[in-house]
Amino acid sequence: MNMGEQVLLSGDPPIELVLKASARARRFSLRVSRLDGRVTLTLPRGASRRQALAFAEEKAEWIRRHIAEHPGEMRPLPGQAISFRGASLPIVAAPGRAVRLVDDRIEVPARDPERTPARLAAFLKHHARLDLVEASRRHAARLGLAHGRITLRDTRSRWGSCSAQGDLMYSWRLIMAPPGVLDYVAAHEVAHLAEMNHSPAFWVQVARLYPDYDAPRRWLRTNAQNLHRYRFKD
């Protein structure tokens, strides 16, 4: 058996899953990713492929229920909608060469619709940079500190980070969240300029910059998978 092997369980619907061995695992365990719906079955040492598939068959209905709860990936195209600053806005094909925010919709060039996802990603990154630079500067000024370089990435494991040199990194997908959520993440990372840890002293700094930080933290825990469901690359 090849570890990392992809297998298909028959049924309605069929289930794609990945078999993964772990020397530390003591039993079979299943995980359905909240980000992309990937199903991973971890095997303990000495378990066979046959045993793994038998276990998966026993848990097939449980797997299907969890997959059904996952929103699934979406490639944003005209006729669909995308989240922008917390609002679900329709994507509308229109004349012109640039993506534009017009009233309560996002207009994209009607020409070459297959390029729409890439165009939307560039649009989102542009606005994410504007909002995150402004928020970072504002929070840093309140602490009387200076931050370093700001970079944007498409990260899944974290929404932001602060280096020992004071450089800030953010996920540009934060522009799809409500403004208060983006502002909280900026406050969180800027607070690390004063406290490079997550000690009680650090959370005092966060509360100083964003007093009601529990609400946006809960929002991110609940809605992270919705921000990551959009697929902008082939």
Rank of each mutant, 00 (worst) to 15 (best):
L120R: 05
V32G: 04
R26D: 07
E58C: 01
E134M: 05
I82H: 03
A87F: 09
L124V: 12
L120Q: 07
E57G: 04
K20P: 15
G79K: 05
I150H: 03
F84R: 00
R38N: 10
S157Q: 10
P90M: 06
R119H: 13
R38C: 10
T151S: 15
K125F: 03
V108R: 07
R138N: 09
L19C: 02
L130C: 10
D112R: 12
Q80T: 10
P109F: 13
T151I: 02
L101A: 13
D154E: 15
S88R: 13
I82N: 01
D112H: 08
G72D: 02
R137N: 12
A98M: 10
A135N: 08
W62K: 00
V108K: 05
R64Y: 03
A54M: 06
R100K: 11
P44T: 04
A94C: 11
S136M: 12
R24A: 13
R75G: 02
H70C: 08
R115D: 13
P76F: 06
A60P: 00
S29D: 01
V39C: 05
R97V: 15
G46M: 07
D154N: 14
R142L: 14
F123G: 08
R24S: 09
H70E: 05
A146N: 07
R38A: 15
R85K: 09
P95G: 11
A87D: 11
S48E: 01
F55W: 09
D36Q: 07
P95I: 11
L19D: 05
A23Y: 00
P78C: 12
R153K: 15
S88I: 14
P71L: 02
R45Q: 11
E114M: 07
R153M: 10
T42H: 04
H127A: 08
L43N: 00
L132Q: 04
R24P: 09
G144H: 06
T42E: 03
D36L: 13
R38E: 15
D112L: 11
E134G: 12
